[in-house]
Design a protein around this nucleic acid. Structure first.
Length: 600
RNA sequence: CGGGGCGUAGCGCAGUCUGGUUAGCGCGCCUGCCUUGGGAGCAGGAGGCCGGAGGUUCGAAUCCUCUCGCCCCGACCA
């Protein structure tokens, strides 16, 4: 056995200390940025040698990327177990028949990767596991005595995303923690939900993330209410409406708009037809007519899939200064999807070119009309004339046209008051890292997950489901914590806690000091990477910064000169110089301090 | 799926429009010398089915057809 191996303190390590010599480590860092990477977390994870792409949306986690993921998983496990959940592991390959029981085999769409095995049996790769877990539980649980139950797994999911992007932020294959709760009644189910809510707060706090829990749309998973946990970052794919005066926060898809009283309604004037040649856009029409966009009503045609309006076209009316919120529209219609019709489809359906479409006379053409509350409150507004180059003025809903439904259909705007307290709202971007749903009995009824209660009655279990994007957390943490030199990992999820630079490989004193520190840190359970590569100091510093390791210990010429080594904090650049003997104690203090700070 | 763009060495790119020496540059990699506290320097070297298939041509990275893959903008979601 080579001497170097014998001298490795690895074998005498206690605690969780993980040892690694950089000269042996597979951490292929890149000086240049790969062209494919757009967002900062993707760029840095590629450059730092944490991930490599196999194919679109599918990545290999290299040792250090995996190490960060394992740190997150460990936190997730600790908090889930603490909240009373039990870990199991379900299969990734699932039979189509199970999905047919809930109707989702048809409903889920192309995101569900379907295939046939050699016996021609239809199967799919699990994008989520409600069906599998419900199947399991219905087979084993008969009595209220066996409930409540909360089961979770940490597993790779596959969703054949239309457009994977941003590296680990939206991969097709990704690591997810999913948990499912089963309860005897609503009260108990709500307790389960609250427990998960609390566990999630702890998990994201411990991961060192700045986040916010927001009210959310429950989407295709279904169910009665839900919260999303959002990491606040500019590259977020979701927009949140956050109240500056109370603790209200919601995804804009969901954010309710408080109806405002109509101020001093003017009397209705006579309907007038006005020529507006070539004026199709809101801005052009308003300028031409000398009115503000809040006096104009846009008419948008949507095609509906699913629900009672399946296959129909719907005209959606919102003010010219507003945007249709499609999720709200979907919910109002009970549809599974709504798609904006293109110009040709609009013409085919209504006989009117886009830009001149209006609600007056539309009913005759069997297009359903739905209006936002604000439109219903408008007096003497302008709408498309229903023929090329004409608009109508002084239009009033009720008098000039009728709507089949009125509702909250537009996206919330900055000037909207908070729906809860009436205070000021702001909008910020967020990355969804967790989502909890109260499912109710949607799945248990569809699949017959019943139990016998005290009273002898058979009842469906009340379910909840709770997801965390484990691999996405790592990306989100980087989005939130980086600078021009690289990643700045929160200590709790950094692949290693300390990087120890030996800047004097050929200097016996320096090398001895570095090796000694390395051994002592490992013995204390500190995760440490010893940079023993035959590289120039500049390269080592650059890589240390890029990797984002929280503490950097440099053993170099200052040891001989001043008897000290340098410790630098990656996050704030704070640097201290200490004699080697004090280094281990200092770092242990820092690590303990950071850990205790996280949860108050 | 619609719209835009890109496939040339491990990475970043030039060359393609206007076909014609041996396909080039920077970084990285290998060898040697030198250097060692913020990605050094010099010298030598390895590495290419120019994404793939078919065609046009005396001749194709370059022109044509077909394909495969990837990235960006929209609808999905952890």
């Amino acid at each position: 056995m080579p001497l170097s191996l014998l001298s490795l303190p690895l074998f005498f390590t206690k605690g969780s200390g993980k040892s690694m010599r950089y000269s042996q480590a597979f951490v292929p860092t890149l000086k240049e940025t790969p062209a494919e990477a757009e967002v900062v977390s993707h760029r840095l994870m590629l450059r730092a040698g944490y991930i490599r792409k196999l194919t679109a949306g599918v990545y290999t986690y290299l040792p250090f990327g995996l190490a960060a993921i394992r740190k997150v998983e460990r936190i997730v496990r600790e908090e889930m177990n603490r909240a009373g959940a039990q870990e199991l592991l379900m299969p990734m390959v699932q039979p189509a028949d199970l999905w047919r029981e809930t109707g989702r085999y048809e409903k889920y769409g192309p995101e569900l990767l379907r295939f046939k095995d050699r016996h021609d049996r239809e199967s799919c790769l699990g994008p989520t596991h409600e069906e599998v877990i419900t199947d399991l539980v219905r087979g084993e649980v008969r009595s209220y005595r066996q409930l409540p139950l909360n089961l979770y797994q940490i597993q790779s999911k596959f969703r054949d995303e239309i457009r994977p992007r941003f590296g680990l932020m939206r991969g097709r294959e990704f690591i997810m923690k999913d948990a499912y709760s089963f309860d005897v009644d609503d009260a108990s189910a709500n307790i389960a939900y609250e427990k998960m809510y609390g566990a999630y707060q702890r998990i994201f706090s411990r991961c060192g993330l700045q986040f916010r829990a927001v009210e959310a749309d429950s989407g295709s998973i279904g169910g009665s209410f839900s919260h999303e946990f959002m990491v606040l970052a500019r590259t977020g794919e979701d927009t949140l409406a956050v109240c500056q005066d109370c603790d209200y926060a919601a995804n804009v898809e969901k954010a309710a708009i408080k109806a405002r009283p109509v101020e001093n309604p003017e009397p209705m004037s006579d309907l007038a037809r006005v020529e507006t040649p070539g004026k199709r856009k809101v801005a052009a029409v308003c300028e031409f007519l000398g009115i503000g966009p809040e006096r104009l009503v846009k008419t948008m045609i949507y095609k509906v899939t699913g629900g009672e309006q399946q296959g129909r076209a719907v005209a959606v009316l919102v003010r010219g200064d507003r945007e249709v919120q499609e999720v709200k529209l979907k919910n109002l219609l009970g549809a599974s999807d709504v798609i904006l019709a293109d110009d040709q489809e609009v013409f085919d359906l209504t006989g009117v070119p886009t830009g001149y479409l209006g609600p007056v006379g539309l009913k005759a053409r069997k297009v359903m009309v739905v209006a936002d509350w604000e439109v219903a409150a408008l007096r003497n507004c302008v709408v498309g004339g229903g023929e090329k180059n004409y608009h109508l003025q002084n239009v009033n809903m009720g008098r000039d046209f009728a709507a089949d439904a009125i509702g909250d259909l537009r996206q919330i705007a900055d000037d909207d008051p908070c729906p809860r307290c009436g205070g000021t709202l702001g909008q910020i971007e967020g990355i969804e890292v967790g989502h909890i749903f109260k499912l109710g009995t949607v799945y248990s009824e569809a699949m017959g997950a019943l139990f016998q209660d005290h009273d002898g009655q058979e009842k469906p279990m009340i379910m909840g489901c709770y997801g965390i994007g484990v691999s996405r957390i790592v990306a989100a943490a980087i989005e939130q914590n980086h600078d021009e030199n690289g990643i700045i990992f929160p200590l709790a999820i950094a692949p290693v806690q300390v990087i120890l630079l030996n800047l004097g490989l050929k200097d016996a004193q320096i090398t001895a000091a570095a090796e000694s520190l390395y051994g002592r840190l490992l013995a204390q359970g500190v995760d440490v990477l010893l940079d023993d590569r035959d590289e120039r100091p500049g390269s080592k510093f650059k890589d240390a910064d890029l990797l984002g390791i929280p503490f950097r210990v440099t053993v170099g010429t200052r040891l001989g000169k001043d008897g000290v080594v340098e410790i630098r904090h990656r996050a704030d650049g704070v640097t201290v110089e200490l004699p080697p003997d004090q280094v281990v104690g200092y770092l242990l203090d820092q690590i303990a301090g950071a850990a205790s700070q996280v949860l108050e």
